[in-house]
C-alpha cells in the first residue's frame, strides 16, 4: 500500500522514481559476494546508513574471499580486503561482517544449494525482516559472483521460512524464518537489464558516511596512481583543479572518489525528488502472490 502511494505521489510530481519508505522491521541482512559491494558507487551505503540511523541492526555477509581484488597476491588481498570491509561496515554502522570465504570469482562452479544453505542458516539465526543484495534478475551482469550470490539470496530469503528446507538446522536452536522484503540493486548503465521500481533517499550525513566507507577500500579504490594519471592528463592540456592544489596524490584520489559518489547519489536523488538517493527493485511482502495482492490490500486490517 505504501509502495502504491509512493508511486502515485512520484507520478503526480513528474519524478521518474517513487521514493520508497523503509520497510518495517528491525533487522537487515546484506548478503553480497565481495568486500566492497555494500559501498560501491551504484550501491547501497546510503541506504545502509539510513537503516542503521533508524534503528535497524544490519549484518553484512561477504560470500567470497576477494583474493582476486587488488594488486597483492591472493592470500594478501583476502586479508587486506577483509580488514577494509570490516572498517567500511563500521563507518556505516553495521553490526558485523560474516565471511563465507568462497573462492573469489569461482562461484559459478560451486553447488549453489550449498551457498544457499549457508544463507538460509544465517537468515534463521539473525531473523532479518529485510534482505538487500544484488538483483539476481539483472541482465548483462558479467561478474559470476554477483549473479550467483544474488541467486542464492533470492531463494534463501523465503525458503528459510519452510520447515522442510534443511531441517538439520533446527538442531541448532533456530526456527524457520522468512524475510518479508527483498531489495535488489543493480547498475542502471548496463542496457535495459534492470528497471528500478523505486528509490530510498538519505540525508547529507548518511551520504558522507557512504563516501567515507567507499574510499576505505584503499586496496581497490582511491589509489594514488589514479590521481597521478588524472594530473598528467590535465597537465597536457595546461589544466589544473584548484581543489587539488594542497593535496598529495592519496588525498586527491580520495577527493575524486568522494565527488563521484556524491554525484551518483545526487543523480538518482534528482529522479526521486530527494537530495540523495539510491535506486532499487523492491519486492514487497505479497508480490509473490500476484493474484491476491489487490484482495489483501483491500482486506487486511490492523489488530
Amino acid at each position: 500500500m505504501a509502495f502504491l502511494f509512493a508511486f502515485l505521489l512520484a507520478a503526480a510530481f513528474g519524478q521518474t522514481l517513487p521514493q520508497l519508505p523503509l520497510p518495517p522491521g528491525k533487522v537487515v541482512l546484506v548478503p553480497q559476494p565481495h568486500h566492497d559491494d555494500h559501498t560501491t558507487d551504484y550501491g547501497m551505503g546510503g541506504l545502509i546508513a539510513r537503516f542503521v540511523d533508524e534503528g535497524y541492526d544490519v549484518y553484512y555477509v561477504r560470500a567470497s574471499n576477494d583474493e582476486k581484488d587488488g594488486v597483492a597476491l591472493p592470500a594478501e588481498n583476502d586479508n587486506i580486503n577483509h580488514r577494509e570491509s570490516v572498517a567500511a561496515a563500521k563507518v556505516l554502522g553495521m553490526k558485523e561482517v560474516i565471511s563465507l570465504n568462497w573462492r573469489n570469482d569461482y562461484t559459478a562452479s560451486i553447488p549453489l544449494n550449498e551457498l544457499r544453505a549457508q544463507l538460509i542458516f544465517l537468515i534463521r539465526k539473525l531473523r532479518p525482516d529485510i534482505v538487500v543484495g544484488h538483483n539476481p534478475w539483472e541482465h548483462y551482469q558479467k561478474n559470476p559472483d554477483h549473479r550467483n550470490v544474488g541467486r542464492a539470496m533470492a531463494e534463501a530469503y523465503w525458503m528459510a521460512g519452510l520447515a522442510n528446507v534443511h531441517p538439520e538446522h533446527f538442531k541448532l536452536d533456530v526456527q524457520p524464518h522468512q524475510a518479508a522484503y527483498l531489495i535488489g540493486k543493480a547498475r542502471l548503465d548496463w542496457g535495459l537489464g534492470h528497471t528500478p521500481n523505486g528509490a530510498f533517499s538519505f540525508n547529507e550525513a548518511q551520504q558522507r558516511r557512504k563516501e567515507i566507507a567507499y574510499q576505505t577500500h584503499r586496496n581497490v579504490y582511491a589509489h594514488p596512481a589514479s590521481a597521478r594519471a588524472l594530473k598528467a592528463t590535465l597537465a597536457k592540456q595546461n589544466l589544473t583543479v584548484p581543489e587539488f592544489a594542497n593535496l598529495d596524490d592519496q588525498a586527491i584520489a580520495v577527493q575524486m572518489e568522494e565527488w563521484f559518489m556524491n554525484w551518483q547519489s545526487r543523480k538518482i536523488g534528482k529522479q526521486a525528488g530527494a537530495k540523495y538517493a539510491e535506486d532499487y527493485y523492491f519486492m514487497d511482502e505479497f508480490d509473490h502472490l500476484p493474484g491476491l495482492k489487490d484482495y489483501l490490500q483491500r482486506n487486511i486490517q490492523k489488530q
Partner: peptide
C-alpha cells in the same frame, strides 16, 4: 500458503477477516 500468510499477519499484528 494460507498458514504462512496468516502467520505473517499474526506476527505483524494484522488480520484478514
Amino acid at each position: 500458503v494460507t498458514r504462512r500468510l496468516k502467520a505473517r499477519l499474526d506476527a505483524t499484528n494484522r488480520r484478514l477477516p
